[in-house]
């Protein structure tokens, strides 16, 4: 088991229960719900094959779904997010950059590009989740404000985790 797999597994085991037990209950003003576990998908190595990425995404979403009783919702959105991940990444980063076995991080991409990449991913994810929820209970203004507020709140926390991970890595070096 190499280092990438180990850190992926660690993120999975820590972030899924944390999402279910803590972040799902941290809803501000009834609109801003932090969706933090997609940090796993955001920081998967960009060279990882799409099939493997989607499988990890599906299992990740399924685990969150089981714990928060939303069967299929996060599994579907995580699979799609893992599918479009490379496309979003290359919107902000050149394709010919040397990225062998590297994960998208603040250190590898720089603050601006990382914020753009993570922000796009988070916004797409929140839009998918809340549009699917809106299908079950028609209330456009509520769900529109949830998409906006949750994207901002989630990005804040994900950026905090990413910069914490960078500091930890720099200390180690």
């Amino acid at each position: 088991m190499n280092k990438t797999t180990l850190s992926l597994l660690l993120q999975f085991v820590v972030l899924v229960p944390l999402q279910a037990v803590f972040f799902n209950n941290l809803v501000l003003f009834n609109v801003a719900m932090p969706i933090v576990f997609i940090y796993v998908i955001i920081s998967m190595p960009i060279t990882m094959g799409p099939n493997k990425a989607m499988t990890i995404g599906f299992l990740l979403g399924m685990a969150v779904d089981i714990m928060s009783d939303t069967p299929g919702l996060n599994a579907l959105c995580c699979t799609i997010l893992a599918f479009i991940r490379n496309f979003v990444f290359h919107l902000y980063m050149p394709t010919d950059a040397d990225l062998a076995e590297q994960s998208p991080s603040i250190r590898n991409m720089g603050v601006a590009a990382y914020l753009k990449y993570a922000g796009t991913m988070v916004t797409i994810y929140c839009a998918m989740v809340f549009c699917l929820e809106a299908l079950q209970s028609w209330n456009p203004w509520l769900y529109l404000s949830r998409i906006v507020a949750s994207s901002v709140f989630s990005l804040l926390i994900i950026y905090a985790i990413a910069s914490w991970a960078r500091n930890k890595n720099e200390k180690r070096l």
């Binding site: 989607m54 599906f58 299929g72 919702l73």
Partner: peptide, 16 residues
């Protein structure tokens, strides 16, 4: 990759 996407999406949609 399209087949994998389709399989996972169908499973999720059935559950959903």
């Amino acid at each position: 990759k399209w087949l994998v996407l389709l399989v996972y999406a169908v499973i999720s949609l059935v559950l959903l």
